[in-house]
């Protein structure tokens, strides 16, 4: 299953709820303001690092770049995808939940 999160974890609880309800081995994609959750050194970084061990965590590169978030500061284990990769993630998973 693919979980899509688009909210900054500093503003809303979507990501936290998603993490509490995502099965191990599921896939999580961070887009829009949720890309901030992929960065090192923040209050959610440890949580995201361990999430990246249980699940496959991706972040949408164009959204990172738009927000000036450098690749080298992405939490280890989190992979970047472009829109084409986003489409592949949707196709490769049986179902999709958007945590609006």
């Amino acid at each position: 299953m693919l979980h899509i999160v688009n909210k900054s974890p500093f503003e809303r609880n979507s990501l936290e709820t998603c993490l509490s309800l995502a099965m191990d081995n599921s896939t999580i994609l961070l887009i829009e303001d949720a890309v901030y959750a992929a960065m090192q050194g923040g209050k959610f970084s440890d949580k995201m690092a361990s999430a990246a061990e249980q699940c496959s965590v991706y972040v949408l590169a164009p959204d990172l770049q738009a927000r000036g978030m450098p690749d080298e500061k992405i939490i280890s284990g989190i992979k970047t995808v472009d829109y084409s990769g986003f489409v592949d993630l949707v196709a490769d998973n049986k179902n999709v939940q958007s945590w609006l």
Partner: peptide, 12 residues
Amino acid sequence: KTLMEEQDVILS
């Protein structure tokens, strides 16, 4: 988790 996993279409 189990309930969500078994769905075909999830409207949020």
